[in-house]
């Protein structure tokens, strides 16, 4: 059963750096107990370091529709961490 609330952000039709911009907006208002599901055809590499320095962890999943789903959540959010580590 999923505990964390999913906040979905599909940026697959946007050109850089718009996906990064949108992700930062979404991360800025993300709460503990929530995770951001970032959907794109490519991995947002420049975002990973910024997000990590901002206190977020991430996990990359490859979906059947060809998109990457990158989940971001607060590194100190133990409940969400435990849920995703069990995946």
């Amino acid at each position: 059963m999923t505990i964390a609330t999913r906040i979905e952000l599909d940026v697959s039709a946007l050109a850089p750096p718009e996906p990064l911009d949108r992700a930062l907006d979404a991360l800025a208002v993300l709460n503990r107990g929530e995770y951001l599901a970032f959907l794109h055809y490519r991995e947002p590499f420049p975002l990973y370091q910024t997000a990590a320095e901002g206190g977020f962890r991430h996990r990359v999943l490859e979906r059947d529709d060809g998109k990457f789903e990158i989940r971001f959540w607060y590194a100190d959010d133990d409940a969400v961490t435990a849920e995703f580590e069990s995946l």
Partner: peptide, 20 residues
């Protein structure tokens, strides 16, 4: 424009408001 933005963003580190 993209490269200059990328270098500016790197220079901001994790300061989201500065990046914005």
């Amino acid at each position: 424009p993209f490269l200059s933005y990328l270098h500016m963003q790197r220079a901001c580190g994790s300061d989201f408001s500065k990046i914005k």
